[in-house]
Design a protein around this nucleic acid. Sequence first.
DNA 1: TCCAAACAATAGAGCGCTCTAACGGCGGCA
DNA 2: TGCCGCCGTTAGAGCGCTCTATTGTTTGGA
Lengths: 345, 345
Amino acid sequence: MGRATMEDVALRAGVSRSLVSLVMRDSPRVSSARRAAVVAAATELGYRPHALARQLASRDSTVLGVLVSDLHNQFFADLVDGVDQAAHEQGFSLLLQTGQRRVAREEQVIDTLLSFSPAGLILLGPVVATRVMAGAARQSPVVAVTRSCRHPDIDTVTDDSEAGARLAVAHLAGLGHRRIAHLDGGNGAQAALRRRGYRAAMAEFGLPPLIVRSEYTEKGGVLGARALLGHAPATTALFCANDLNAVGAIAELEDSGMQVPAHMSVVGYDNTALAALRHVSLTTVHQPRHEMGRLAVQLLLERIRGNRETVARLQLEPSLVVRETTARPRHTASSTPSLETEVPA
Amino acid sequence: MGRATMEDVALRAGVSRSLVSLVMRDSPRVSSARRAAVVAAATELGYRPHALARQLASRDSTVLGVLVSDLHNQFFADLVDGVDQAAHEQGFSLLLQTGQRRVAREEQVIDTLLSFSPAGLILLGPVVATRVMAGAARQSPVVAVTRSCRHPDIDTVTDDSEAGARLAVAHLAGLGHRRIAHLDGGNGAQAALRRRGYRAAMAEFGLPPLIVRSEYTEKGGVLGARALLGHAPATTALFCANDLNAVGAIAELEDSGMQVPAHMSVVGYDNTALAALRHVSLTTVHQPRHEMGRLAVQLLLERIRGNRETVARLQLEPSLVVRETTARPRHTASSTPSLETEVPA
DNA sequence: TCCAAACAATAGAGCGCTCTAACGGCGGCA
DNA sequence: TGCCGCCGTTAGAGCGCTCTATTGTTTGGA
């Protein structure tokens, strides 16, 4: 397998190794004659620069370390995709490992990633302690995505989940709903913010909040909806922790003979491909995850290239995507005329 | 950021660099006294071996290059997850890039991955020409997943898609269906095999085949179902290219007033998380993708460790997962009694 | 005609590690 | 007592590249 080295190319082209190096790096100060000779020799030998050796010698890396919480979750897969595309455009490669939502494993992964001295580190939905991230930040720039964190050395990219929750509540209230419950995301990332946004929005509309403990999974949605039907059967609308949770809730509602949206309106969060499926057609809050991945890379590059020293905390605006799981409540015509003026079309 | 080197540790521990190297590699022939001193010095300095330098010097890599076709597709995300777990267990890291289903990009990605001289290359659903894979195989062991390929240097992991197609048809025929159509996967990986399996199985049951050109996407399912309803409205069962395709088909069927499975039974392929959603509850053919990812790593390690010289072509047996989108046809009771004997329960 | 400046090319010292060969010191054996 | 072999340790030569400093070689201006 012994691949050709720079030395081989130099020998064949009748020049020094240094000259080959210059050609490989597209230096302008090489005569076109020599350049041609080197290029010819290189292609003849099938030469390809050795990335590791290059990075060792030049001590700047073209690798970005990526820790992703969980690839089973479509949301993170999309984030990785955004990261990959942006990195690819800038000539970077990804060294990727999954953390499986376990703290110990994440710590180990961060350690491994750092041992490659990457140009930067991107943490997608990390659950590890801020202290650990800060430790990593002393070796290499770090960006955390979907995880707010106040450390001055760690850039973050998140969506404004409070605003997102408000969008959902406002939409439902605008349709005339008054009993709007929230199946929350438990201890998951951003769950606290969505809860807070929900509470604030409900207060704003003068409605009583009702939060059911749940989590970011389909099963969580099933159980949450079941609990809700038991405790508060009069509820007419549901704001779910995320799309997966919403789909679970819908399944449970339908199993108990209710129709969505006729008997219950449901809103999800994330606007994953799942929500967009015609068979599901879920009204949801859009989080621009592809864009978030791209931005994470951009922030990293700013640090790598020394264009920025101060911390960056990007918060993207979510938007509402109305599909077919939300509608006016059925029997509340008498209580909603005042709101109708706000909903022209 | 200047991190500690082996030299620093050696100096601090009062030993040679070579000795530190031995300790870092857990060599047995180091006195426990010196070992302790080195370990102490290393932790004090926060020393971490430099993976790149190590690989350059020892010329064996702990990195596996991974080309993944498309992370948006849950199927591939799951494959990557399996690969990641197996690799992690064996102390390998993944260098990952996506090919976006484009040949040119895949070629470029393979080139980039090789420039890191990885221990091996895993191609998940590649669309690139066999010739290119063979070229890569001269630099490093290569395993292709979900892509059969006859080259003697390229190991493969696939499912037996012909058998999978047969499972689907046998299930539907067993329920009493006679007009079973297939929305195919076009030029996609394994699509030709599923077509062939479908044809063979239909022939086996003495049924007339009907193949509608489609693709591995939701939209393909929508369009395919529409075309089917136009051309062959008497069809009572549908075997779809994959789950995504099936979900699209179901949406279209429901939009045209049909009920699944009352008016049309639908079977998918892959058994992705999507199919398992209670709201979808799709009968489908299970492909053990997590396992396939693990096996890919295992094959690579066999080559890397020199335990095998001959080509390996693993073909996994798919299995049928019956859920709620398949049932007996409605009005064909008179034509099916002969089949009922085959379906005891 | 001469020298400075500009340009092309190269030598050689690393980058942080591994690994072979060799070293010194010790105990065991004749 | 002398020699051999073993063990723990180390020197030093790379791995394939980058990059600074330096050497030649032209060119242009005075």
